[in-house]
Design a protein around this nucleic acid. Structure first.
Lengths: 214, 214
DNA sequence: CTTTTTATAGATCATGCGATCAACAAGGGT
DNA sequence: ACCCTTGTTGATCGCATGATCTATAAAAAG
């Protein structure tokens, strides 16, 4: 070890002979593995390790992405894509359904999408790095999810407590924190996350005097 | 630029002449700046940049810390230290004070301690890195804060809702998420965090039928 | 089968990083 | 004023990393 002549030795000695894939397929494969990889080790993870995981050489990565930042951009896009279905604003404001049922439906499905190791960690890494996509996502979330929930709550509140956007953030944060606990901090999560979510929603509704069937 | 002879050029050309400090003082100065530095750029921030901020040479850092990991350990200790005052278990279980007042006192003071950029970000960075201190801190938190709160809530719950530890995590997460929003994601925080905290506590207590004065 | 195309590998470069060490100088003791 | 300890510097080492370039071979085209 330490032999300078070892630098360029083969990095994919396991799989077998060189396998040639159509560019589109290879690219997708790289991005998919990169998501898992960077989610694990952080955005500073090095390209050689990633290549090793893929069973290809490091130089190949640069045939598909001019720079590592380009690869990270692709990772972001892959991860951020389709987490917020465009029909949620509509469904959240459908007053033919009780608000509790709407919130429950949203947070059940949303949590199923985001309580995933790769998403949680890359979201956090990119947030810490100040990535633009992160800001955009959260602003989008505020606009299409939190604000509608606030409006629906305002419309149904029966007691003196007037809801503010911070109340929605509190509901949202309490739920999202389940994923943070488990995937960022590595603590054991709840046995039944959906039950915990339901109770969070019930606390929220109760505070504003909103009946479960309303 | 690119001249290989530039590598070793002075890295502290601003302040003036070489200032000689007692080791203890210098060490503290390094740790303090390192906290701010690593909180900003992440734990992979390089020692040369840190040294530049301090106005000393990079090599000096290694006179005080044998390795960069040692420095990071010192940063962890500095940051994690004294965030959980040892008298909180006692104060949280003092039944001569209404539970609401106890929770309010705790989370007001606790949030004042942790809603700080350096803490929030280093806690998150170290959590993502799987640092042992992070786990220990959270387990400690669970033991000396969350469990007592659960016991107190159980003792006072008047309706059918039986509290579980996940309810406390939900309360806690909803509050901590305020700090995450502002310091990790860089979003504007609430105008009055204490008010938001009070409302979170009220939602929590109401759900278990606990009167504010109980 | 032969030719052409291009996905892939292997080697290498330039730079940046953590870490080391000899030389220097600031401050205290005498 | 002098020495002597040691905090501090400047230069350098070894290695890892992002990126580049050329040779190779796998699949497609004829």
């Amino acid at each position: 070890m330490g032999d300078p002549m070892e630098r360029g030795k083969p990095q994919c000695d396991d799989g077998g002979p060189r396998r040639r894939l159509p560019p589109q397929e290879r690219r997708a494969q790289i991005v998919e593995e990169a998501v898992r990889f960077f989610a694990e080790v952080g955005l500073e993870g090095n390209t050689r390790q990633l290549a090793k995981r893929l069973g290809v050489t490091q130089s190949l990565l640069f045939k598909y992405f001019a720079t590592k930042d380009d690869l990270l951009e692709a990772v972001y896009e892959r991860v951020y894509l389709d987490r917020l279905s465009p029909d949620w604003p509509e469904r959240l404001t459908d007053r033919s359904v009780p608000l509790r049922a709407r919130l429950l439906a949203f947070y059940t499905q949303y949590s199923a999408l985001i309580f995933e190791r790769a998403w949680m960690r890359i979201f956090m890494f990119s947030g810490l790095a100040g990535a633009a996509l992160n800001h955009r996502y959260l602003e989008h979330l505020g606009g299409v999810i939190l604000r509608p929930i606030l409006a629906e709550t305002e419309a149904l509140a029966t007691n003196g407590n007037r809801p503010g956007l911070d109340d929605i953030w509190n509901l949202h944060g309490g739920i999202v924190y389940i994923g943070i606990r488990t995937h960022i901090y590595g603590l054991p999560g709840p046995d039944n996350p959906e039950l915990v979510i339901a109770r969070a929603i019930d606390k929220y509704l109760l505070y504003f005097g909103i009946h479960p069937e309303a």
